[in-house]
Amino acid sequence: MCLGVPGKVLAIEGLVATVDFFGVRKELRLDIVDEPVTVGDYVLNHVGYAIRRIPPGEVQETLALFEQILDVSGAREDLMAADVRGEIAAGQATATVRAKA
């Protein structure tokens, strides 16, 4: 329902932050963000408002959670192997189109 995109805070002036979204910058309002925000933080943007400061460690935490979910649900393969396969798959996307022809 609500489009949210994460970006990195470059500067703050009062209740307005300049945020970088991978090469596009936009000013966001900080009126309703859940925690104090400082330069360098990641925030989630929704309709021009920062709605959440994403604490630095929590991205890793979510990834760890996926692994935990997989573990609980039963046997699973070696994660390293999966990682390597993922990277290969991403790198070869173009190659696949041609190979399939």
Partner: peptide, 20 residues
């Protein structure tokens, strides 16, 4: 279409994501 083979600039993708 093989989506990962479509060339899109980072800034265009960022703006597109933001605007849905």
């Amino acid at each position: 279409i093989e989506e990962q083979a479509v060339p899109v600039r980072d800034q265009v993708r960022a703006a597109a994501d933001m605007l849905g």
